[in-house]
């Protein structure tokens, strides 16, 4: 039985994703989930979403995919206790130490290892399984061979993003701090924090997607070539039947920062595709190619808008801390 995980950057998006057939939705608490505040939720909103999902037999995962500061671990754990008390079904976590702590604190909940943990091989899966993690998200570059090897090495649940496997470019989740080297912004009051621990990896200070804007690249004394550090991701389709056969249990849509209508249509589409594969009624993915192409065009368009927004924000930000005088 496969599960479709859908993003919920807002309560509106959460309700839409649940209504369209997502099995699980994931939400980020303000300041703890690597997204700007407009794509995260207040605690009250998360409680509302937990209640809405529970009433419909669906599950909610709370995303704690920041690397917390050692100074804020108590607040981190307090947040998690609160969501547990409200009936959340599990957490998506990045920091290995936090995963181990969560396992001891919440033996009854589902723990996912986030893409930001930087898994690269099947032994990583064994390591996280030994910590008590239930599900591991697989790297963007992995195909059938790596999935089969990991399935053979560990009984940990396997989750993949609904993106095509990509072998080129700088695609390094969990192994990249470029954005914070170049720019950061201060916490905003709404995020509930007033201290510096500053980067996308560490909270609501968003990643500016600097890998997706244009750079000049080359040797010092030669004309540089304009390029992006990675190409646009494409939505996954053809691989799905084989991935299901190999034991992938969770398929994850990203896009908490996308428009709700886009997520609603994607959930509807992938619900239909996965149901067709599981029932055996529609394993020929060519049946869905035209519909996917239309969704892909919308996806890329929305993504470009998002990158432009982030780069505009980055351009308006300082690279220094306002309270420290520079030499």
């Amino acid at each position: 039985m496969t599960a479709l995980l859908a993003p919920a950057g807002t309560t509106e998006m959460a309700f839409a994703a649940i209504d369209e057939g997502a099995d699980v939705i994931y939400v980020g608490p303000l300041g703890w989930s690597r997204r700007p505040y407009e794509s995260e939720m207040t605690d009250d909103e998360i409680r509302t979403v937990i209640d809405y999902a529970g009433a419909r037999g669906k599950q909610v995962r709370v995303v704690f995919n920041t690397f917390p500061s050692p100074f804020e671990m108590d607040g981190f754990l307090d947040k998690a206790r609160r969501f547990d008390a409200w009936g959340v079904s599990g957490f998506i976590v990045t920091d290995p130490g936090a995963i181990a702590l969560f396992r001891r604190m919440f033996p009854h909940l589902v723990l996912h290892v986030s893409i930001g943990s930087g898994v690269t091989n099947a032994w990583d899966a064994q390591f996280y399984r030994a910590l008590g993690a239930d599900v591991i998200i697989l790297p963007y570059r992995w195909g059938e061979e790596e999935i089969a090897q990991t399935r053979a090495a560990s009984d940990i649940g396997l989750e993949v993003f609904l993106f095509e496997t990509v072998q080129t470019g700088k695609i390094c989740p969990g192994k990249c701090i470029m954005s914070s080297y170049l720019k950061f912004r201060d916490w905003q009051e709404i995020e509930g924090k007033d201290y510096f621990y500053g980067s996308a990896n560490r909270g609501a200070k968003e990643c500016y997607r600097v890998c997706q804007t244009k750079w000049d690249f080359g040797v010092a004394d030669e004309p540089p070539a304009p390029l992006k550090l990675r190409r646009d991701a494409r939505l996954m389709l053809e691989q799905l039947p084989r991935f299901v056969d190999l034991g992938v249990e969770c398929f994850k849509l990203s896009g908490r920062e996308r428009p709700t209508a886009m997520i609603r249509d994607l959930v509807r589409f992938y619900r239909k595709v996965l149901d067709g594969i599981e029932s055996g009624a529609a394993r020929d993915m060519a049946l869905h190619a035209d519909e996917l192409a239309a969704l892909q065009a919308r996806w890329v368009s929305e993504k470009r808008k998002r990158v432009d927004t982030l780069m505009t924000r980055a351009a308006g930000l300082r690279s220094d801390a306002p309270w420290i005088a520079s030499a």
């Binding site: 917390p68 500061s69 990045t94 920091d95 290995p96 130490g97 936090a98 181990a100 910590l131």
Partner: peptide
């Protein structure tokens, strides 16, 4: 450096 060491919790683990 790419071991993602951000917390004392992870340091104790490794």
């Amino acid at each position: 450096v790419f071991g993602n060491l951000y917390t004392d919790a992870t340091a104790r683990l490794v």
